[in-house]
Design a protein around this nucleic acid. Structure first.
Lengths: 191, 191
DNA sequence: CCATAAAGAATGAATGTTCATTCCGTTTTG
DNA sequence: CAAAACGGAATGAACATTCATTCTTTATGG
């Protein structure tokens, strides 16, 4: 196994175990075993568990943003852009439950709050796509005149909630239902 | 301090510390100290930490439901009922940030998933108020014809999201903004 | 009404466990 | 062969829980 393979195995194992068991349910020894690696080896690639967690978050988020922005254009009309991002996000979460659960774990943790603060105050790439969409929507009078944060909640609160419910098996979201759900989110933000 | 006082102090301390620091950031010793009580004393009232956590959840949820149902009547029109529950919930969360954070902690934990499953399958009092509202809304063709779970997500996903943002200081929700937010949620579920 | 004993409650130091991290002998690589 | 990578036992800190002891309340008898 090459050097990079090992790092990847650690990251994969951490994703699987933390998504399923949470940060505190997934000890380093367990991650090492799942990765087929000695416990000490993890520390050759990550200074400590916090760094592993944060780095893994970065990778998961980056991959998510990349997929989301495929075929996205700020030239298209607001509504179309909104539906693109909404269905894209929901589809992605459903297709990648481990990533979704990991992102949720991260957001509902001390890590998450700090990170969120950075995102809203400073400018983090990926976030400005949303900010831009909502800014445009408001200034073009297509969306309700509400604070950015509220529009964000109206748009993505339901997406996260249904993704969770789908992954936990409380509902089955097929393509038709995904489309209807995102349309309903649009009804929430549109003027 | 009487017997009941001591139990109450433990519950209060646990609420404060767990809301702020999470289940894993709030050791029993710390809860005991904050409660002004010996570490062993907690175990006279709660078999172990899990029981304390679950029992505290029960109490917090019960209080929340009681407040929510003040002045609520299933006789009123759907929209009015929806706005009552929505604004009621949002106001309550904003006025009681500790309770809100605690509920969030609980939901995003292994405890929470089991609890949620029970709620959706079996019938837990308090939950049927929502179920009934959405059932009525759909059958009277006032709401979109979507699965209960999706309607629930559309209605309360945004409420939880903005409550979180308000409590973390990312937005200030006054009465006017609360009303606008819940109206927007209504736009999401209404036909 | 007091003295005394029994029961109940409370305490916090001690225990055992779990875990992140380190250390050092071994293996692989270049 | 030297250097880097690796493994996994060893270490020490943090934590939930226990339990022998102390304190408080209540009951009893004179």
């Amino acid at each position: 196994m090459s050097k990079l393979d090992k790092r990847d195995e650690v990251v994969r194992a951490a994703l699987e175990l933390i998504a399923e068991l949470g940060f505190h349910g997934a000890p380093m020894a367990m991650i090492a075993e799942r990765a087929g690696v000695g416990a000490g080896t993890i520390y050759r690639y990550f200074e400590n568990k916090d760094v592993l967690i944060t780095e893994l978050y970065r990778e998961v988020e980056e991959k998510f943003h990349a997929v989301l922005l495929e075929g996205y254009s700020t030239k298209k009309p607001i509504r179309e852009r909104f539906l693109h991002l909404g269905t894209g996000a929901l589809r992605y979460f459903i297709a990648n439950p481990l990533e979704f659960r990991y992102l949720e774990q991260f957001h509902n943790s001390p890590f998450g709050v700090a990170h969120r603060r950075d995102k809203l105050l400073g400018v983090k790439e990926g976030c400005d796509v949303f900010r831009e969409l909502f800014d445009d929507g408001v200034s073009q009078q297509v969306m309700k005149d509400l604070p950015l944060v509220v529009l964000f909640a109206l748009a993505f609160g339901p997406v996260l909630a249904v993704a969770r419910d789908h992954i936990l098996g409380f509902v089955v979201l097929d393509d038709a239902l995904i489309a209807l759900t995102i349309e309903a989110c649009w009804d929430g933000v549109k003027r």
